[in-house]
């Protein structure tokens, strides 16, 4: 518990110093006081996932995830802009159901957020117990669960499983 608190304190303190950017005595004192408060208030939230931070391979996968995600995000924007300026609005919208093998809360949150910024998909709800995601899809190619999973989830699930599970 002390270790978790120290980690949170270090993270928030460094974050505060970057945010304020000028090293003066007032900034350091305020950062230290706030860091202590935050570490006491939130240590229970981060307790269970703390062991994940120790494995360096996960960081490498995270650095692989960032460019893939940015590229998909750019494609999503160009796709969205194309649909907006096309005179006849080329869309077949619908809410489909997809499966996921991810279990932990952090991984599911990242998966849902990534899908929302991916081309044509937006997460509406998560069923954590069954491992299902309800995804609003602008251009529905199939309403079958398995095929929709292939189209939407697989690409990022592989990466996120290596980062967070």
């Amino acid at each position: 518990m002390i270790k978790v608190r120290l980690n949170i304190f270090a993270a928030t303190f460094i974050f505060w110093l970057i945010l304020s950017w000028t090293l003066t005595a007032e900034n350091i004192i305020i950062g230290a006081v706030l860091g202590i408060c935050v570490s006491f208030l939130t240590s229970e939230l981060f307790n269970k996932d703390a062991k994940l931070l120790k494995k360096p391979l996960r960081y490498l996968w995270f650095f692989y995830y960032i460019p893939v995600f940015l590229w998909e995000c750019l494609k999503a924007n160009i796709d969205g802009a194309y649909r907006v300026i096309h005179p006849s609005l080329p869309m077949r919208p619908g809410i489909v159901k997809v499966k996921t093998n991810l279990k932990s809360e952090t991984a599911l949150t990242f998966l849902a957020n990534t899908l929302t910024l991916n081309p044509g998909t937006m997460t509406v709800d998560i069923d954590q117990a069954g491992g299902f995601l309800y995804v609003h899809w602008v251009d529905v190619k199939t309403d079958d669960v398995e095929k929709a999973t292939e189209y939407i989830v697989r690409k990022f699930e592989r990466i996120l499983m290596r980062i967070f599970e």
Binding site: C73, R83, V84, P93, L117, M122
Partner: peptide, 18 residues
Amino acid sequence: RFPDIYNRLHSSIKCVTL
């Protein structure tokens, strides 16, 4: 331009975030 709230959220969230 988009017809319902879900499609509007699509365009606003994606384009406005990036």
